[in-house]
Nucleic acid binder design. Structure first.
Lengths: 340, 340
DNA sequence: GTGAAAGCGCTAACAC
DNA sequence: GTGTTAGCGCTTTCAC
């Protein structure tokens, strides 16, 4: 029976029972006769019955759809997060629907505004860089949409958040540099205003403080997250009157950019100049010298966010917001080998 | 009016008109009074009315959902393809729902089997390596599910397909090697059975043939797509009695693996040994020496596939399958600089 | 140009 | 344990 899609009505007709019995049998509701149930299951299998999600969604007011809103997917971190999300969503029978903001606040806004509430059981979101639009998310939350933020989380919103330990990761990264004799440490940061950028900055500042190293404002540069930005930032740094001898980059891509800039000036990385990144993008093992970095648990960020969201969806009323902070792990490689 | 989501009924009640008029007004159906329409639009905007996709889907039998089924998302090629898909889907008002097979035929099968027909207007799919399960896709097609295959396309299925020009790309890649004095060329291929792997192999063989270079069967290795596979394949190659002096890798990740293996043996890449990849993964500019490669139009593969699918969804009856082949582009870098 | 009503496929009271 | 029925929100004949 192709084309005319088979519905529970068809099954009911064949078995000469009512649709509600079929419905119950299909869903493991216990007040149904074992025999009837088996028959239903058999016919359903034979006819290749597939439930119509629109109908169940409509009738039950729940869709088993999870929306993911994030800035990009074509980079190691985010694509790995999605892989993690996808894994638990699949296991629990949820579909994931992707919305990519391109890190544009307008796009983000338009996505949220057009979001059909009734089409999602919950939302997983990583906000974009200049998302001044906290209030749109606030609105969503007030309307009781289950929502979990990950990685790029908003500052002033009370919601569940899953992130890596950006502060301590940064702190350790900088300390690692210091322990390897690099003490003139610059920081090429991300854009201002993002929580995790600020936490990494704070970790950097506090590590310097702990080791009584004065902060040089000129050695802190805010810009984008791209490799190109890392390269440009580093060129600026190298043009400083007083040059740093190490860079803590907010992520690996910027660290890679930094290394490229350093190489162009024939500065020997790992010996004359230390570089440490953040993420543990596979590229960090491929570049030469290999890049020391703080590994982020990207996959876990995804899977845990998704679990938390599903918990929130299922518990709803009794759910309390949770903040999950996952630790990072220093991966020591050649780019920070003992300075001279 | 938060929480109780606003429906067309609410709008109708406020305006004291019928729901059908509201419905028509909202959808630009022309047989509705201008004034009425404007009023409806105004109230809808004020109330922040969002259509319930489940309801529209149920009523109209179409969902504006596109399913994407692919092996992975956490790599450059696929995540870029998705970015392309996402861009046109968004522009045309379609949502994309992600299914990741992890390159597992069982997972792929279970996804297809559980696919609720009524939940998708169409499917974009890149099959997994050992997808012997052509017939499940065949079934889908017979049931008139619009479907477009991209990149990893099945051999024996009559459907629209979008891919890069794997044959000519491979041919040119190998010729490039030859022109640069590398004539003992090995090929580290992907798994057998995948169309594009075979096309690249054929391009390799034909290029050798054209230049009257005999084929050495030992220099053709089939394995997985990962960097690790590339490394292992290369080690095997280097252990051959007669060593090749160049490698054409089925993709950049394997090429990178090859380079790593070569470096371990202190073989000078670009001079003593040529390496060329396929994809133009950004990592190819970061490794040293930089990697020559055939650039694939990943983003376009995505956007064109999606356009084709939407065309198929909207035209349906009058639609004829199309095969789109996009050209690749040689990006010459250091890893194939003139051999000695 | 607009309204009434049926129906998309399914679930969930409520009877029995 | 099973059937009947109403209804989820929307679209779409069919009247008027």
């Amino acid at each position: 029976m192709p084309h005319h899609l088979v519905t529970i009505k068809d099954i009911a007709k064949i078995l000469k029972i009512s649709v509600s019995t079929v419905s119950r049998a299909l869903r493991d509701t216990y007040d149904v006769n074992r025999e009837t149930k088996e028959k239903v299951l058999a016919v359903a299998a034979e006819l290749k019955y597939k439930p119509n999600f629109n109908a169940t969604g409509l009738a039950r007011g729940s869709t088993h759809n999870i929306g993911i809103i994030l800035p990009f997917i074509a980079n190691y971190y985010f694509s790995t997060v999605i892989t993690g999300i996808q894994e638990v969503a699949h296991a629990k029978g949820y579909n994931i629907i992707l919305f990519v903001t391109n890190d544009s606040p307008e796009r983000e806004l338009s996505i949220i505004k057009n979001l059909s509430f009734s089409s999602f059981d919950g939302l997983l979101v990583s906000i974009c860089s200049d998302s001044a639009e906290d209030n749109h998310f606030q609105q969503l939350i007030e309307d009781e949409m289950p929502i979990v933020f990950f990685d790029r989380v908003p500052k002033n919103i009370d919601a569940s958040k899953v992130m890596q330990d950006d502060y301590n990761g940064a702190f350790e990264a900088v300390e690692h540099l210091i322990q390897n004799n690099f003490t003139k440490i610059a920081h090429i940061a991300g854009p201002k205003g993002l929580t995790f950028t600020e936490k990494r900055l704070q970790g950097y500042l506090d590590a310097l403080k702990k080791h009584e190293i004065p902060v040089n404002e000129k050695w802190i540069i805010f810009s984008g997250f791209s490799q190109e930005c890392g390269e440009a930032d580093t060129s600026r740094l190298l043009a400083c009157e007083e040059r740093p001898n190490a860079i803590f980059a907010v992520n690996d891509r910027k660290a890679i950019g930094a290394m490229l800039a350093l190489k162009k000036q024939n500065i020997e990385i790992g010996k004359d100049f230390g570089v440490i990144g953040f993420t543990n993008d596979p590229v960090s093992t491929i570049i030469s010298p290999t890049l020391t970095t703080m590994a982020e648990p990207a996959y876990d960020i995804g899977s845990i966010s998704c679990e938390l969201l599903i918990k929130q969806i299922t518990k709803k009323k009794y759910f309390h917001n949770e903040d999950v902070v996952l630790t990072c792990k220093l991966i020591s490689r050649e780019s920070t080998m003992r300075g001279k």
